[in-house]
């Protein structure tokens, strides 16, 4: 256990160093004048002028040597500071805090919903592998995965906001606004997690001990609960653990469709505006979250299957 924690800690530090340095290097070498990019984001397309860009350049000292800027970022990081956004001038940590919270909520809801939808469906189709339900579920999963998330989101809006008038199409603040974006994400996730669970269950169903248990006369339900769920759980947890990162980073389009504040949006904005500290901060937070999630997945897998811990 200590080794596991220590390993993840080292990974976290490594991630921080690499993410910080890499983002800095990449954003610095990108073509395009950073002062103009920042000014465009600050003042908007109508008021952007060359004078504004020059003012930004003077104010931010963008022409200072890069080692100085990078060292300062690492120095700040060591003291727990992420610097100030070049666009708004606000501390990056404050800007991120405002967007990370909604992102985490959205991710948590989407994960929970996808489990609610994907697990039972995966179990059911795995137990009856090859049946009509299994085939239908495959087609459904492929259809959901072949639909870009913004199309799926639009369909959900049309159904739940316009046709049924149950939920608002956009906004944020209460659970009502969160329902549609998290459902959009959850359906995409459930499409795959249901297949992962189905494969795992089908695998278990084909093993000797499962067939033996059935021969013993145990009802299918009891066997699944005892052997199937536990065995199917590990791949599903592993899969969802990795997907949680996607939930946090890859949801930009869902965020912008539903006008939901989130860190994906913040990251895209920051890359476009060449807001180096924001890019570094957002990427760092996502990287650390990935490390944390991996730790959680490891621990959960051990809980599900104690042999994993012993094997190492």
């Amino acid at each position: 256990m200590t080794r596991l924690l220590l390993g993840r800690l080292i990974q976290a530090v490594l991630v921080a160093l690499v993410v910080g340095g890499l983002c800095f290097a990449l954003v610095r070498v990108l073509p395009g004048d950073a002062a103009f990019r920042i000014a465009a984001d600050r003042y908007g397309p109508d008021a952007l002028t060359g004078q504004a860009a020059e003012a930004v350049r003077r104010e931010l000292g963008l022409d200072r040597p890069w080692p100085e800027l990078l060292l300062r970022w690492f120095g700040d990081l060591a003291q727990g500071r992420l610097g100030n956004s070049l666009v708004s001038g606000e501390p990056v940590s404050e800007e991120l805090a405002g967007q990370l919270g909604p992102s985490l909520w959205l991710a948590a809801c989407a994960l929970a919903l996808s489990l609610l939808i994907g697990l039972p469906l995966g179990l059911a189709s795995g137990l009856r592998a090859g049946s009509g339900l299994d085939r239908l579920a495959l087609v459904g999963a492929v259809a959901l995965r072949a639909l870009p998330p913004f199309v799926l989101g639009l369909v959900l809006m049309l159904v739940f906001s316009i046709r049924l008038e149950w939920l608002p199409p956009a906004g944020y603040g209460t659970w009502r606004e969160m329902a549609l974006p998290s459902l959009t994400l959850a359906l995409g996730l459930a499409a795959v997690s249901s297949r992962v669970a189905r494969d795992a269950v089908a695998e278990v169903g084909a093993t000797a001990y499962y067939r033996f248990a059935r021969l013993k006369g145990l009802p299918a339900g009891a066997v699944v609960l005892r052997h199937g769920l536990r065995n199917a759980g590990i791949p599903v947890v592993t899969y969802l653990g990795l997907q949680a990162v996607y939930l946090i980073e890859g949801v930009v389009v869902v965020e912008s469709l539903f006008a939901y504040p989130g860190i994906g949006h913040a990251l895209v904005h920051a890359v476009i505006a060449r807001d180096v500290p924001m890019v570094q901060g957002a990427a760092l937070v996502m990287g650390l979250m990935f490390v944390l999630l991996n730790l959680g997945v490891d621990l959960l897998c051990r809980l599900l299957d104690p042999r994993l811990g012993a094997a190492r």
Partner: peptide, 22 residues
């Protein structure tokens, strides 16, 4: 493994956006 973990920890979107900016 360390390399793959770092790539995973870097947002994929960031990689694509940055390469595209070139």
């Amino acid at each position: 493994v360390a390399l793959s973990d770092i790539v995973l920890a870097l947002p994929g979107l960031l990689l694509v956006l940055i390469l595209l900016a070139f």
